[in-house]
Simulated scan of single mutants.
Amino acid sequence: MLSASSAPIIEATLPVVGDHLEAISGVFYQSMIGENPELLNLFSRSAQATGEQRSALAGAVAAYAGRLLHGEPESHLVERIAQRHCALGIRPAQYTMVGRYLLGAVKQVLGDAVTPPVAAAWDEVYWLFAAQLIGREARLYAEAGVDGSDPWRRYTVANKILEAQDTVSFVLTPADGRPVPAFAPGQYVTVAADLPGDGTQLRQYSLSQASTGGTLRITVRRVPGGAVSGYLHDTVAVGDTLRISQPFGDLTLRPGDDPLLLISAGVGITPMASILEHVARTQPAREVTAVHADRSPDRHPLRVDMSATGARLRSFRSLVWYQQALPAAEPDTYAGRVDLDRVPVHPDADVYLCGPVPFMQGVRAGLHLRGIPDDRIHYEVFGSEQWRRPVPVAV
């Protein structure tokens, strides 16, 4: 917890930091990446180009500060970020550099308002956050059997399957002959794509089948202009090898046998396919409803897999909405595409969401109206998009 001397300073300055978060984030990334261009390999260049990436870290630190002030549990925020960091191979030594540039950006943007006591208070917040992350990441690495500086394994592409008009699955086997790691349904891996003439880029992809012990499967939708998805679709072939991280991620199936509601849009169906297959194997009597929104039937990935898997359950419903029934001018976010009034929602349902952020925000709001509390709604956000504004403008 914050020291008695720092708490009132953070309370007084958090609204100002929140109001200047975009500028602080811009200075932070410009200075850090400018002086350490090798870090470009850790971040999505498309997300940096659109400005999405810049807000992620500063926003997380500000959100953490707000939770410290209000005594709210921060384990969820720490867990999600720690899982993502492990999938990227982040190491403790990098926190020192990041902290230096982040606090330097705060001073540069806010100027004389950052007195020595203010700087010391925000330094304390950052290192409280960093210490929790470092500790959790060390445990995750140990559980995954990752040690040393290289978290990657090479996998051979055993099969490449066209799942939909713009979506391909890659079935992967370890090139070293060692066993495939066990993983929880809903987790993801990072692909370290060595792009010809353009260095290495890292992307996370959900594992789209349950843990089988023999293979991993990722399902990749082509992103217009996407460097990594384009490379995987156009260049990587059966017999090629890819560098893959251990599985990580916290959108995992919680213990229990309450009715399950899986809601996805687009390629967000991938963790749902893994969860559904796991339930079909281990809890075939469990009640499951799968809801999906997509652009059209020919762009709906894993549709056949989901239907076949659901048929193995005693109680399974599938509901689908397609964009083609909506005005062509509507933005391609799937927001509001699912009519929750037509979805059977059990009051004790455990809900899992994956898809574009506006879609999940709309569905979450609708679930609240149906009486589902936050602690029963689990979601996954890929990329650097924020689930909601990370810091209040007043405390």
Rank of each mutant, 00 (worst) to 15 (best):
L262R: 03
L262F: 05
S264D: 02
S264H: 03
A265I: 01
V267I: 13
G268V: 06
T270E: 04
P271G: 04
P271K: 04
M272A: 12
S274T: 07
L276I: 07
L276N: 04
L276A: 02
H278A: 01
R281M: 00
Q283H: 06
P284S: 02
A285D: 06
R286Q: 07
R286E: 01
E287I: 02
V288F: 10
V288S: 05
T289P: 11
T289D: 09
V291D: 11
H292S: 11
A293F: 11
S296C: 14
S296T: 15
P297W: 06
D298M: 09
H300V: 10
P301M: 10
L302C: 01
L302T: 05
D305S: 09
M306C: 15
S307G: 08
A308V: 14
A308M: 12
L313D: 05
S315H: 13
S315M: 04
F316Q: 01
R317W: 06
L319M: 08
V320C: 03
Y322A: 06
Q323W: 09
Q323E: 15
A325I: 08
P331F: 04
T333S: 15
Y334G: 10
Y334F: 15
Y334R: 11
R337H: 13
V338D: 10
D339H: 04
P344F: 07
P344R: 13
P347D: 09
A349K: 00
A349Y: 05
A349M: 06
D350R: 03
D350N: 04
Y352H: 02
Y352E: 00
L353C: 09
C354N: 07
C354M: 06
P356D: 07
V357R: 11
P358C: 00
P358N: 01
M360N: 03
R364S: 15
R364D: 14
G366I: 11
G366L: 12
L367C: 10
G371D: 08
I372N: 09
I372Q: 12
D374G: 06
D374A: 14
D374W: 01
D375H: 08
R376V: 06
R376N: 02
I377H: 00
H378R: 00
E380Y: 02
V381I: 15
F382N: 12
S384Y: 13
E385R: 14
Q386G: 14
W387N: 11
R388Y: 10
P392T: 15
P392L: 12
V393P: 13
V393F: 13
